[in-house]
Design a protein around this nucleic acid. Structure first.
Lengths: 200, 200, 200, 200
DNA sequence: CATGAATGAGGCTTCATTCAT
DNA sequence: GATGAATGAAGCCTCATTCAT
């Protein structure tokens, strides 16, 4: 801040984060060398260590950033003046695009929940709690307004959030019919089921 | 000759698999050195390579085994002479314990779907297709019998299967209330929502 | 010797040697696992260690055997009642077939002259000396009979023996003419040059 | 930038090459661990991989370098304005020292001609062809000028080149006389025989 | 004698991290 | 601040050798 000739450390930091996100979304953490991230970011390997203490910190910085963005989306929607039964599908749709671009990173979060780095794991946990909280608020509101059944809101919110990780638009091999089948799951479909159930 | 008396390759193979499963369920593939698996299995590193061609083959053997078991559960239930609307929650309940013990391994499957080792990836894909197929059969049956709405059965099956990965009985930090909250999601709860929806 | 039911350890020993020779002639010593030799010989890995103290001893046993055979060839020819100028090309021709089949093993001898295993290296050295001796005898005889010039016979013998390792019937890429060229070196050609020189 | 002052990649590369050459000249490729080469070069194991993609590439770099030097020697002599019958012994003498220091490496070339790494093997083959070509030119010239007999020049060249691998100045155990004998083969001696033959 | 499962040392290679420039 | 050469720990895997059967 307030550096002389229009140079901004935040910009370089972001460049590194962007490069890392792109790579970490394609490959596993352990298959994504710092060197490759540095090359894609257009900086030297050593430079990354000026902005992040370690590879792990870089990784968690990404997760935090993404979680924050998801939280912002949810929070923004939560504040809207529309019924809860419109907020939830709206958020589902909005973040489905967002998540789509970062699905692998998010999946790895869940897998790594329970790793070493205590400090970061905890913060991640907290951030997840905050997100869950926003959803709970929306659901509580819906229940209060008699839009939703009187299920425990936290459990509903948890179930709802797990839809974040549903693979949309999957292609699956169906062996006995000997051909590839495209299974189109849309946010709208998920919401319809979540709202109305499948029972006739 | 020589392997006469009390020697059984299957037992040792299983010992290795068990050790690997335990470790791979805690950490990522890349964070689970063969040496650690060997130590836990009580054998030498080299011994593992008598039973598995490579670390990757060991990994996929586990995935295949687990997928097969899940498929068997589903298939067994599918053949029962009860309505589809009882089959689905039954499967959900039955495998929820099973999955619980191996959740992280299953999660890593999803993350890694799309990695290197073409041959194995394909087989995994096929196995997943077979599992999906069993669920589709059940749902198709339910639709035919007018138990379920007329949604595309493959999409419903996919959504249903994604419940496999829902974290049951979660503990989550709720920051603004400054305390840990236990969120109890049971198979029954999931099924109630899936069947009847949340709309009042 | 004198075992009961017509069983002969020498036969099994030879079977192992034959298998090892075949493999060691195709690949390097370090690229020829004992296991592969055992498989080709139709015995168990452990069995090899009943006949040879170590892989290295097996290797040297082969070298010794081959050297002995070459020596026998030379010695047999040396004793013939023909002029030295016929003995040398005869030996050249005879052993060129023999060597052809075992060239790589022989080449590795030269390369390994100077390794660890003092004991074996020394014996190999001695065996080479004995072979050299036979050739020297022939040449000395030729010199005495005025067939050959009065060069130091040991040096001539050494030079002569080095022809053992000439690659006969080579195919070589000639780049500037952009095609493969077959270079046919025969024992007779070598002898003609050795005897008469290339000067016009 | 940063590599500014006293740093030269070629120097370190050469240091590694020198160390590798020294070791590879004493032992087989497979008996020469990268670790030992690194230690002799005074660098860490990992450093070697900054300059060479793999152990195999390091090995072939050495072979290429040596082959190039031999080729240069030959080419330089070929261009001289002296009769072919002086060029050949000159080359023999000049490279005999050079080869002497690297004999085992050269021998391993011959042994390994026909191994894995297709790409490198082929380049090596081509380099050998180029060297052979220079010698052929000299011999062709000698034949044209009636210095040499009208033998096929390629075969003569091949035979001539095989003298590269003759062990000069050998010490051999002569067992029946119970003493070590020194056999002094000089380039001049080889040339005398090659030129004039041994026949009286 | 014969077997082959088991061992573990040791080889190659990758990559996070450091540090002199 | 920025760089990237250097490091060396650590991972996967092979294979000579042993030993219980």
């Amino acid at each position: 801040m307030a550096k002389s000739k229009g140079w901004n450390p935040e910009i370089k930091r972001q460049k590194i984060l962007d490069a890392a996100i792109e790579i970490l979304n394609q490959k596993e953490y352990y298959a994504s060398p710092i060197g490759e991230i540095a090359r894609k970011a257009g900086v030297a390997k050593g430079t990354i260590y000026l902005y992040f203490k370690s590879k792990e910190e870089l990784y968690f910085s990404i997760l935090f950033m993404l979680m924050d963005k998801v939280w912002e989306m949810a929070d923004e929607i939560q504040k809207k003046n529309i019924p809860a039964s419109q907020k939830l599908p709206l958020f589902l749709k909005k973040h489905s695009d967002f998540i789509g671009r970062y699905r692998n990173i998010f999946l790895s979060v869940r897998q790594n929940l329970g790793s070493h780095e205590k400090k970061c794991q905890q913060e991640l946990h907290i951030k997840f709690g905050e997100l869950l909280n926003v959803i709970i608020k929306i659901i509580d509101e819906g229940i209060r307004k008699k839009e939703f059944k009187n299920y425990p809101s936290s459990s509903l919110a948890m179930l709802y959030l797990s839809f974040m990780f549903v693979n949309m638009h999957q292609k699956v091999d169906m062996h006995d019919k000997n051909k590839m089948m495209k299974i189109d799951i849309t946010p709208k479909f998920i919401w319809d089921v979540f709202l109305g159930g499948i029972a006739k």
